[in-house]
Design a protein around this nucleic acid. Structure first.
Lengths: 339, 339
DNA sequence: TTCAGCGATGGAATCGTTACCAGAATCTAA
DNA sequence: TTAGATTCTGGTAACGATTCCATCGCTGAA
């Protein structure tokens, strides 16, 4: 045989009309038993498989969901993607993966391409919330959208939001209780909810303790390891030197730890550290690092769940994922500033 | 406006025939300048975008590539996927991501679904090389295939193959030189090239040193952390106890290190360790672990490159990725068996 | 016996695009 | 001026499926 088998071939073999074959195969009720067996036998014999492309063109639904993130090699996103793809697959949807490489332009192009591919929905972690492109691009999507940890006004999108503030506040309060005052805070870009919400928790802890927020120790800029490294180097040269670091984003945290290594500072002894988010093998190779944990699998399956809900015709919703602070050796000791 | 703008709307607005619009927009040479401007203006004004679905149905090419792996949350695959997606995107292709969750059945279903989606090609890391399903499924793909680190006969597929043997051999020779004899080897399933090729390197090192291979210390079974843990526990109870471990697969290695923790064995002091593959933050939190490294980005972009070549009409090819052994503290010391 | 009613089936239009074919319009050469 | 070549354009048939509509045959009631 050559070329895929079409419904036309099945019709010819069964000696019936195209439309009858379609009715049988799509489970239409008004078909006689004899017709059903005839068609099913022919389809079986020829190894017929429906062409999803043609079905999509006709039906208007592609049963594909776009997944746009900065970078799938970020372990957090990878776990989110896995859980999300699994859940979507169970419901008959496929996932089209696109990295935006931290570029708003690439992200915008990705949205445009997904629109032309007529995806049924998009799940995205935007590079920035305030870029003018993106909002226009998204509004023209004509498909449901689920945002991951982003807060963009006027979009009618669902969202999976992490409650960073609670975890970060607990972590910061813990550090304050341990006597730390010069606590440095490093996280990603300021124009995303993730960072703002973490700062919220950080600030609240200081406010509740009645201690002034060390604003000059808050360093923002990006999620890459180089930012973490540069910021940490810079902060470690300040006087008084920060005695504790709260570092967010896996990349940034890596940068911070590198800076510690450069300065021969031992974590948990010379300097305290709380990592925001955990990463693969965290429990094996970073056993002593205090962390604010969120469950990435839950984020992924919730995202899938939310988009499926909208596709069923329900309203856009928001899900909140909890965070949990766990104190470990890295934040127990540490040289505490003397005032 | 309601519903997407079609080529028909553009034709109506420009006052020309459908076919002329198509010709202009697809860059056909036989169009007059006036026609070109008329159509382009109308398309611009209406915000026309071609429907990739319809184009695909017509042309037979979807410009999508399927990507099937065991688990995207494995950091190695995540980096491969990112590099691969980037390269494909630059060439106008999108990537459909599917996890096979370590199940041959799921993998087979994924292949079938990709076939029905009429993808132009598939890049896959098979769960097993010898499963009867898979070969049948793959042969009916009707699209080029790139295998990642797998060796399946009679497929006419391209492949990106890692030369594990060289790196593992160097690592093993190093351990033998350090005086180790009871060297345990833990890696994934035996029915994939990755494991076989690693064992090849392991064996060759012993052979060249004229030392008998400790076959009872070779433990295979799977790539998950639980396998690593179970096997390592078991091996650590043997007499004489292995003094060094070569552990492959990020998950397995994690299991092995957990077993060390359970037994309060300090890496590089009580027991030597060489990790096959590195993982995120390896350089930060596993600075002292000897490793056999391969570049996952190269694997991803090579995979994309190979499939693009076949899509251009060239023959299927095989690319080989090098490995590099780096000795670090974890394999320097260690209690050496006395014979 | 005849007609209404009903279930099952075939034919044709449609989704949005491209590509072939024929014909119109313009141009060149004799 | 006309035949022939050369552009360019419009109509139409696909790609592979679904769905509406009309029709056909059959049954049951008057």
């Amino acid at each position: 045989m050559e070329g895929p088998v079409t419904i036309r071939d099945v019709a010819a073999r069964a000696g019936v009309a195209l439309s009858s074959v379609s009715r049988v195969l799509s489970g239409h009720p008004d078909v006689s038993a004899s017709m059903r067996t005839k068609v099913e036998e022919a389809a079986q014999a020829l190894g017929y498989e429906p062409d999803l492309l043609a079905q999509s063109l006709r039906s208007g639904a592609t049963r594909t969901i776009g997944f746009i993130i900065r970078d799938i090699s970020n372990p957090l996103f990878a776990v989110v993607a896995r859980a999300c793809e699994q859940e979507l697959r169970r419901n008959g949807y496929s996932l089209i993966l696109m990295n935006s490489d931290g570029s708003v332009e690439t992200e915008s192009k990705n949205f445009a391409l997904l629109r032309r591919r007529r995806v049924d929905g998009v799940i995205a972690s935007l590079v920035a919330e305030d870029s003018p492109y993106v909002k226009k691009t998204i509004l023209s999507l004509r498909a449901p959208l689920v945002l991951l940890d982003r807060d963009v006004k006027g979009l009618d999108a669902s969202a999976v939001i992490t409650d960073h503030a609670t975890g970060v506040k607990a972590a910061t309060t813990h550090l304050l209780d341990m006597g730390h005052r010069d606590i440095a805070f490093i996280s990603g870009a300021a124009n995303v909810y993730t960072t703002r919400n973490r700062i919220k928790g950080f600030s609240e802890a200081f406010a509740e303790a009645g201690i002034p927020l060390p604003e000059q120790l808050i360093a923002l800029g990006g999620f890459d390891a180089e930012y973490g490294l540069i910021h940490a180097r810079h902060l470690l040269l300040k006087t008084p030197r920060p005695t504790a670091f709260v570092a967010g984003g896996i990349g940034s945290t890596a940068g911070v730890v590198r800076a510690f290594h450069e300065m021969k500072l031992e974590i948990g002894k010379d300097v305290a550290l709380v990592a925001l988010d955990e990463w693969p093998l965290f429990d094996v190779f970073a056993t002593d690092i205090s962390s604010v944990y969120r469950d990435p699998e839950a984020i992924g399956s919730e995202a899938a769940h939310l988009i499926l809900e909208v596709l069923k015709g329900n309203e856009a919703q928001e899900s909140v994922i909890a965070t949990k602070f766990t104190a470990r050796a890295s934040s127990q000791g540490g040289v505490v500033s003397v005032r």
